[in-house]
Amino acid sequence: MPKIYLEKEDKILEVKELLVSDILKSLKINPTTVLITKNNELILDDVKLSKEDRISIIPVISGG
């Protein structure tokens, strides 16, 4: 299953979904508020992951 690193919470999750947009939906994350990276490269939410992939979710909102 793909591994998801949530940068704000600093934790790693395993998810069953493969399509990035489905992953965001299942984690209740608004796509306009995050950047998604795979191997340090930005990817879009229409990307389909393989089971071995690991992506990071980086919040874009200002931290104050």
């Binding site: 306009t32 508020t33 950047l35 874009v60 104050g64």
Partner: peptide
């Protein structure tokens, strides 16, 4: 905000998320 964050990321200007 997302466009600015993308620009910052592509220029390596974003360090670890740090919230007030």
């Amino acid at each position: 905000e997302k466009e600015v964050a993308t620009y910052a990321y592509l220029h390596n200007l974003i360090s670890k998320f740090n919230e007030c």
